[in-house]
Amino acid sequence: MHESHSTPSERAVALATEFLTRVWGPAHDLEAIDELMTEDYRIWSGGALVAGREPFKEWVRQFQAIYGDAHTEIRETFANAAGDRVVSRWYNTGVNKGIFGLPPDGRPVSFTGIAIWRVEGGRLAECWVERAALESYRSLTE
């Protein structure tokens, strides 16, 4: 992560931006998880908890296997003054490779989402994600 940002808030924004760009961008750089997240990283998404960097990497791999060519467009990211909470609003596009348990057909899929992170020691420590999965599912089944 670039340490040239001067305030805790700016550093938190840079951290979240780097995560979204490297992990959920076209590169799908899973090694970035080791650099940007605490070892005991926890994420709540879709009503499920994934705890630990290695389980999170596997969760990301599985998601990428059913949601191909994923690309995240960051719409807005901001943090509190202390830099221990950061929020990002984003838009993700990809193709159906079996997402939602549906037959893989290569159709375009997109959804919006919001992620709220807790930052600890310059790394992402916890995350709560909400995404418009129902709308995406409906677009593939109607």
Rank of each mutant, 00 (worst) to 15 (best):
M1Y: 01
E3Q: 10
S6M: 14
T7S: 10
S9R: 11
S9E: 11
S9G: 10
E10H: 00
A14G: 15
A14P: 11
A14Q: 15
L15P: 04
T17R: 13
T17A: 13
V23G: 08
A27G: 12
E31M: 13
A32W: 01
I33F: 03
E35S: 09
L36M: 12
L36V: 07
D40A: 14
D40M: 09
D40G: 12
I43L: 07
W44M: 10
L49D: 02
V50D: 01
A51R: 02
F56V: 09
F56N: 14
K57G: 00
W59Y: 10
Q64K: 11
Y67P: 03
G68F: 02
H71V: 11
E73N: 05
T77K: 06
T77Q: 09
F78W: 15
A79C: 13
D84M: 06
D84L: 12
D84F: 05
R85A: 13
R85W: 13
Y91C: 02
K97R: 12
K97I: 00
R107G: 11
P108T: 09
P108D: 14
V109S: 11
I114T: 10
W117N: 10
R118V: 14
V119M: 02
E120I: 09
G122A: 07
A125Q: 11
E126W: 03
C127N: 14
W128K: 02
A133I: 00
L134I: 14
Y137F: 12
R138E: 08
S139T: 14
L140H: 06
E142V: 12
